[in-house]
């Protein structure tokens, strides 16, 4: 504090504080605008007619006859199946992923054995491997080595199961497999903070490794399950590269929402931003809602896990 010199002038201290605080609040507000403007502009544009888009400033709300829901309706028509496909794929993938990862983290953290660190190192390194390094084999794996869609094709006769649903299974398993490292690391950092004596007390109480997991570790990791679910669901739902590689075309019936979005509103005459922004907003809606409801858990996941 610049003003708290030797003469203890209360007034100047208070003034100094106020200026400082005022400065901080100005910055805070400016950055709120910085982070929100692209999003706000997008939403406003989604609600405008093409004419209004060309006429008005992008971030201003639509006025009078410039307001229309036509773009949103049209976008919903095109994006709908992608959103459903993505949810169908991301929900089970996330759940299987976090259950497996929690088990792995338990086996690698709370139970002690020699050589653990080596196995662990492979998990941590796996977090950072660029997916580009595996996508060529991945495509071959699901088409030639293990064509699971064909193997499971009899399932398509079940009620509510369409043949294209099965096409989502390779994508789902892929997400599970490549999601394991990061979620294991997240769970491990949580389990490391759990007192070891709880596990030891379980042993002394005569419980097996499995019972300790079921009766002690699982109930105590409920908050962490929330954190990793929010985190990983967002990641899988938002992911694009695997969809591109395993599904390919935006016109495919099983196309995920991230695959469809970059094609919407594009024509030879240029981009229809009203439609594109509407679609972007609708595509982002599930994770946006999840984020607004559970921002704290999302931040928690990012903090320990990385982007």
């Amino acid at each position: 504090m610049a003003n708290n010199g030797s003469n203890f002038d209360i007034r100047s201290i208070v003034d100094g504080m106020n200026h400082r605080r005022l400065g901080i609040y100005v910055f805070v507000t400016v950055f709120i605008a910085f982070f929100l403007v692209p999003l706000e502009t997008g939403i406003m544009t989604a609600l405008k007619s093409t004419e209004a888009i060309n006429r008005s400033l992008p971030f201003l709300p639509p006025g009078g006859d410039g307001f229309t829901l036509a773009n949103l309706e049209l976008a919903l028509e095109q994006v709908q199946r992608g959103v459903i496909n993505s949810l169908l794929m991301a929900l089970p993938a996330t759940i299987i992923n976090i259950v497996l990862a929690s088990m792995a983290a338990y086996g690698l953290t709370l139970v002690d054995w020699r050589g653990q660190i080596g196995v662990l190192l492979l998990f941590v390194a796996g977090v950072f491997v660029p997916y580009q390094a595996v996508i060529v084999p991945l495509a071959r794996f699901w088409t030639h080595i293990f064509p699971i869609t064909e193997i499971l094709s009899p399932l398509a006769r079940l009620v509510l199961v369409e043949p294209y649903h099965l096409e989502l299974i390779p994508l789902m398993i892929t997400h599970v497999a490549y999601g394991i490292p990061i979620i294991t690391v997240l769970f491990r950092s949580y389990y490391k903070s759990m007192p070891k004596s709880l596990i030891e007390a379980g042993k002394i109480d005569g419980k097996s490794v499995t019972q300790i997991y079921r009766d002690i570790v699982l109930p105590l990791s409920k908050p962490m399950f929330g954190v990793v679910f929010i985190y990983q669901f967002t990641q899988i739902y938002n992911e694009f590269l695997f969809s591109k590689v395993l599904i390919g075309s935006a016109s495919a019936q099983q196309a995920t929402v991230t695959l469809i979005l970059p094609q919407i509103g594009a024509s030879t005459s240029g981009l229809d931003y009203g439609l594109r922004m509407s679609a972007a907003f609708l595509a982002a809606l599930p994770t946006l809602v999840l984020y607004i409801a559970f921002a704290e858990q999302f931040a928690e996941g990012l903090k320990t896990g990385g982007a």
């Binding site: 999003l39 991230t258 979005l261 981009l271 679609a279 595509a283 946006l288």
Partner: peptide, 28 residues
């Protein structure tokens, strides 16, 4: 929460937002 909001969006979505931000004719 507001500062972290962009992280919850897919790159596919944010790319669209910025495409519009940067638009030559009527981008903000």
């Amino acid at each position: 929460m507001i500062y972290l909001l962009p992280m919850s969006l897919s790159f596919v979505v944010t790319a669209q937002l910025w495409l519009w931000m940067y638009d030559t004719d009527s981008g903000i």
